[in-house]
Nucleic acid binder design. Sequence first.
DNA 1: ACAGTATGGAGAT
DNA 2: TCTCCCTACTGTG
Length: 302
Amino acid sequence: MPEGHTLHRLAGALHHAFVGRQALVTSPQGRFVEGAALLNGRVVEGADAFGKHLFVHFAGEQVLNVHLGLIGSFDVLPHIGALPAPVGAVRVRMVNEQMYADLRGATLVQVISPEQVEATIARLGPDPLRVGTPGNDPERSLARLARTSRTVAECLMDQSIIAGVGNVYRAEVLFRHRIDPFVPGNKVKKKSWLAMWDDLVALLPYGVAFGQILTLDSQLEVAREALDGRDPAAYDPSWGGIMPGESGGFVRGDAARGVRFERDYYVYKRDGQPCLVCGSRIRTQLLAGRNLFWCGRCQRRH
DNA sequence: ACAGTATGGAGAT
DNA sequence: TCTCCCTACTGTG
């Protein structure tokens, strides 16, 4: 699941569930005992994300930094009555009076300083979900792009060029702009790259709001209707499901109002099936260790 | 019971 | 370009 939208949504959920209160932090699985001890009992000051990195800020300049990798998950849930026993390999569990959060399978879990947070962000390219953040300028990614002969498909997955894009958004945004995935970065037209950036800036907030990668225009249209005119980018990603209410108890915070979509894309995992635009077979190929999907007929632009 | 797969990334070769 | 790590779930025997 985890591309940038997942982490930003998760940051919002954790923020909403834990901010301003003490959290008990443990490692039921036992592989993060020392880190958990550093955080246990501290007040949570907030949570945010940059690219695929998640940061949970605790009092005393202690920051929990998580990267979910390919298979990680971080469930944020209410506990009514007894706290459920951990299921599976729960590396980190955060608990307050109402909510708990279980982290499993993350590729990176560490406690770092605010300075180290800045250093981590400095290593990342601009994040389409961070427009407005100082220094988060697509021109920076353009400069990197112009200096490499690696394919544009590889560049889109390079977190130091652009942060937050994963294998699904990469394949889909290339298709949406009819870009040949194998064009070298330094041969991609500025206009094409910036058009993809603008598209990601528009698309990713729908991923955050609905908790799903939405790239089909038909689905996005339904998503816009579900938001009833509200801008998904302006929507507080605090989201989701059941959350603590202002005056005790719980409220439903889901801006998407429970709307769910079929997992359906233009090209991702559609190899062998007809292109939704031209009907030719969608192709797939391993590129730098990841499966790339594209339409050989539609995607010829630079 | 095991093999294979997955929306990720680091480090060695 | 390979190898490994992280976990849950699916398919095969």
